[in-house]
Design a protein around this nucleic acid. Structure first.
Lengths: 336, 336
DNA sequence: GGACGCGATGTAACTAGTTTCATCGACTGT
DNA sequence: ACAGTCGATGAAACTAGTTACATCGCGTCC
C-alpha cells in the first residue's frame, strides 16, 4: 500500500468552503478569523488529518527551525552532557537539533558542516577554535550564525561560549602545587587537531608554578589512563601526583593504581578535569575541576536562538571552572 | 548589516543567459547539458555563491533527507554509543540525524515526536516498546517509517532492531548461577516507564534457575549503584553476588565495595550489563553482558535508510548479546 | 531532399505554503 | 441618510525549486 497523498492547504480550503488564505490565517493568526469560520476550518483540518508541510513553510518564512551541532564525539560524557542540555533548551524554544560528529577531524567537520547547511540549518554550533581551511568561506557563503563552544576567546571570528582552557588547567595545577607537589605527571589525550588540549597544556607549561611536569599522551578514554599509569616512571623520578586533563583518563589511572596496589591519595594524588557524574562517587572521590558543560549547553541555546530569531549577535561568554576538592588528593607533607 | 538576499535559481539563470530549467539540470543531471553551457552555468553559480534552498528542494522531491531519533537520554553511554554510530552511518547515506531526548517520559516523547514530524523528518527511530497513547495515531497521520530499537520483538507494530532483554538478563544470571551463586542481589534502574528494565527483571524472575533474588531499585547512574550497595543486607541474608542491570550501576557498586573494603571477586562477585568501554579496564575487569549498541546503530541506519529511500519495510532483527567473562566474578565454591 | 531522430534547451505548470492588496458588508458618526 | 472605518475574506502574486512537454537545430537515412 502506498501512503495516500497527504492533504494540503487547498484540500482544507475546499472542504471548508473558504480560501487558502483563510486557512493559512487559521493556522498562523487565528485571532484574525471569525469564530464560526475558524471552527469550520479546524473541523476540516481534523477530518483531513492535515499537517502543514514544513518545507513549504520554510520556503516562505525562510526559517527551518533547525540548528546544527558539530561535536568531536558522543563517546565522551562531557559532550553528551552539553548536547543533552542544548537539545532540551533549544527544544523549549521551538528549535530542533541536528547532530553531527566529526571525530575531531577538520576535514570531516567541513564536510558535515556543508551537509548541515545544505539541509538548511539556521545556525551552527561548533566545538573549539581550529577549523579546516575553507570553513570561514563556507560560513560566509551561507551567511549563517555560528557559535564556538568549549572555548572562550574575545578575539575569535565567531562568538565563543565556554571556558578558558589555559585557566582550567592552571586551576588544577595550582591545587596540586598548593598541596606541595613538585613532581607531577600530566596525562592528556591527543593534541593533534585538538586546540582545547593544547591550550590546557600551554596553560600548564606557562603557569610559573614551582613544579616539574612530565607529559604522557594517550588515547582519550579509560584505557589511555590505564596505559599512562603503567608507563609511569619508578624510583627517584616518580611523580607524587598525577593530573589527568580529563576525568575519563583519571578513571583509567585510578583503576590501574588500584591494580598496582598504590593507595590514592596516600601514595599518589590523583586529579582530573571535567567533574563527570561518577567523580563524586568514586573511591576515593575524585578531586577535579568542574567544567560547566550543562550551563554551556543552556547558554549556547539562548545565544543561538536569539541570534537566529532576532538577529542579535551574542557576545562571547566566559564560563568559570570550579575546583572541586575531594579525597583523591592530599598534601605531600602530611605523610608523617 | 542585514545579510543580503541569497542568490536563487532565477538569478543564476539570468546571469548565465539560460533558463531556470537548464540551471536545474546542471545541478541534478549534468550529463544532459552540453559542456559549454554547463561550464557557463557553473561559473555563474560560483560567482553568485549560489546554494540551493533545501526547503524548495524538499517541497518538490518530497524528501528532507532527515531522520529523527527519540532517545531517553544522552547521559547514558550506551545510548551515546548507539547514536554516534547511527549518525555516522546515516551521514554516509546522505541522511542527517535530528536528536531529541525524552527523559523516558512518554508524554515528552509524544510531543517531541510531533515536533520532529512537523519539521519534516522522513523516518523516526524510537527506543523501546511502550509509547504514549496517541503515538500510533500520530505516526499513522504522517505515514512515516518508524523503527524501534533497544528491543526485539516479532509482533510489534513497527520493526524492531535490538536485543531480547529477557534473554540478556538470563544470560547474566546464568553465568552467576553456573558459578554456584544462590543468593544474588539485583540492582536495577527505574522500572516505571522503562519496558526494557521490566523485561530484564521479568527474564530474571522467570529464569527457572535455582537462585534466590533480591531486587534494589535506584536511579540509573553511578550514585544509584553506590546507594544500593550501602543498603545491601548484612549477615546470613547477604548475597554472594551482585548483578547490576546496567554497567553504570556496577561502577557505583564497585566503588562502594572498594570503599567498604569488600574484595571483588573474593568476597563478592559483581556483574554488569552493557560492556561499556571502561569495563575492560576496571580493577578488577568487569564481567558483563555485551550489548551490541554500535552494531544496533549500524543496522538501524541501514534499515531506516532503505525504508525511506526505497520503501523496503525492514524485518525485525535480533542482535545477540554476549557474555564477557572478566575478573569480577568467581565461583562460590572456590573459596577454600 | 524531405522525413526522422535526437540532443539541447526553453516554457510553463506544479509543489505547498505565506502575504499583499482589494473587496465586501456592517457599524459608527454627523 | 451618507461618508468613514473596521473586521472578515478572497484573488492572486510570491517563495525557490523540479519537471512534463514543446520546440529547435542538426545530422542521418532512404
Amino acid at each position: 500500500m502506498h501512503r495516500r497523498k497527504r492533504a494540503n492547504l487547498r484540500d482544507v480550503a475546499e472542504r471548508s468552503g473558504v480560501s487558502v488564505a483563510t486557512v493559512s490565517r487559521v493556522l498562523n493568526t487565528p485571532m484574525r478569523v471569525s469564530e464560526t469560520t475558524r471552527s469550520r476550518v479546524e473541523d476540516a483540518i481534523r477530518d483531513l488529518r492535515f499537517t502543514r508541510s514544513a518545507a513549504a513553510r520554510a520556503i516562505n518564512t525562510g526559517r527551518s527551525n533547525t540548528i546544527g551541532a558539530l561535536i568531536p564525539t558522543l563517546d565522551h560524557a562531557i559532550f553528551a552532557k552539553f548536547l543533552g542540555r542544548l537539545e532540551q533548551d533549544l527544544s523549549a524554544r521551538g528549535l530542533s537539533l541536528l547532530v553531527s560528529t566529526t571525530g575531531s577531524d577538520p576535514a570531516v567537520e567541513l564536510r558535515k558542516a556543508e551537509a548541515l547547511l545544505d539541509i538548511g540549518v539556521e545556525g551552527l554550533i561548533v566545538s573549539g577554535m581550529d577549523h579546516a581551511q575553507g570553513f570561514d568561506d563556507l560560513i560566509a557563503r551561507f551567511g549563517v550564525p555560528v557559535v564556538l563552544t568549549s572555548v572562550y576567546s574575545q578575539n575569535a571570528r565567531y562568538p565563543t561560549i565556554g571556558y578558558d582552557n589555559r585557566s582550567v588547567a592552571q586551576t588544577a595545577l595550582g591545587h596540586l602545587a598548593d598541596l606541595g607537589h613538585r613532581r607531577i605527571a600530566v596525562i592528556h589525550g591527543p593534541t593533534a587537531q585538538n586546540d582545547r588540549t593544547r591550550a590546557r597544556i600551554a596553560g600548564l607549561v606557562t603557569s610559573g608554578l614551582p613544579v616539574e611536569l612530565s607529559f604522557a599522551e594517550g588515547r582519550l578514554g579509560v584505557s589511555g589512563g590505564v596505559q599512562a599509569v603503567v608507563d609511569l616512571p619508578r624510583g627517584a623520578n616518580r611523580p607524587t601526583a598525577i593530573l589527568c586533563l580529563s576525568d575519563v583518563l583519571a578513571l583509567g589511572a585510578l583503576f590501574e593504581l588500584n591494580r598496582q596496589g598504590v593507595a590514592v591519595p596516600e601514595d599518589m594524588s590523583l586529579m582530573g578535569i571535567d567533574d563527570l557524574a561518577w567523580a563524586r562517587s568514586s573511591a576515593p572521590g575524585l578531586t577535579t575541576v568542574r567544567l560547566p558543560a550543562e550551563e554551556m549547553g543552556a547558554r549556547t541555546a539562548v545565544a543561538i536562538s536569539a541570534w537566529v530569531a532576532e538577529g542579535d549577535r551574542p557576545r562571547s561568554e566566559r564560563l568559570t571552572e570550579e575546583l572541586i576538592t575531594r579525597a583523591s588528593t592530599r598534601s605531600i607533607v602530611s605523610t608523617g
